[in-house]
């Protein structure tokens, strides 16, 4: 039976990754902090029930993070407003100062990722932030491994078209 690592270890290892995953799908660092805090609060409360055998810590935490992002969107309905604003105003409305403030590299690429359809955004963020396999990403997103791969490559194709070389 696999031993459950101390929660402190999970926290240190995954805080930045979860924050990155969340941040890429929300508007700004303040929202990302709120949702990231919710993720770890929920994980902390549920950690006694977490079974390492059933799920890796990464898959478990990202599942919680995914639900937290969805809850956040439901509560604030910010996704619709954000997408509308981004689609209507980019690139003129893209505020590099916000990205610079958060010291994010390739800020225009982040803006492009945020314009992708929800599931494509999610698969890109999971692929680059979670270290999960496509099989695990598929499990998380309720689709097959092949479907997750397809979704990811479609996202890359769309990004290539959106981001000038």
């Amino acid at each position: 039976m696999s031993a459950r690592p101390p929660f402190e270890d999970l926290y240190r290892e995954y805080l930045t990754r979860i924050y990155g995953y969340v941040y890429a799908q929300l508007r700004n660092s303040a929202e990302a902090e709120d949702v990231t805090a919710q993720v770890f609060m929920s994980a902390y409360k549920a950690y006694d029930r977490f079974e390492v055998r059933a799920l890796t810590p990464s898959a478990w935490l990202f599942r919680i993070a995914r639900n937290a992002v969805y809850d956040h969107h439901r509560r604030t309905q910010v996704r619709e407003r954000t997408e509308h604003r981004l689609r209507a105003e980019l690139p003129a409305g893209f505020d590099p100062a916000v990205v610079a403030e958060d010291r994010v590299l390739f800020g225009e690429l982040l803006a492009a990722v945020r314009r992708l359809p929800d599931r494509q955004q999610e698969v890109v963020a999971l692929r680059h932030r979670s270290d999960l396999s496509f099989k695990e990403i598929g499990d998380l997103m309720d689709c097959s491994e092949d479907a997750a791969k397809m979704l990811y490559h479609r996202a890359l194709k769309a990004l290539r078209e959106m981001v000038p070389k």
């Binding site: 930045t16 390739f106 690429l109 982040l110 963020a125």
Partner: peptide
């Protein structure tokens, strides 16, 4: 190149 940039972009997202 795109994947490299995505990796760098996500890697640079850090909380305060």
């Amino acid at each position: 190149e795109l994947e490299r940039q995505l990796a760098a972009m996500y890697g640079s997202i850090r909380p305060r």
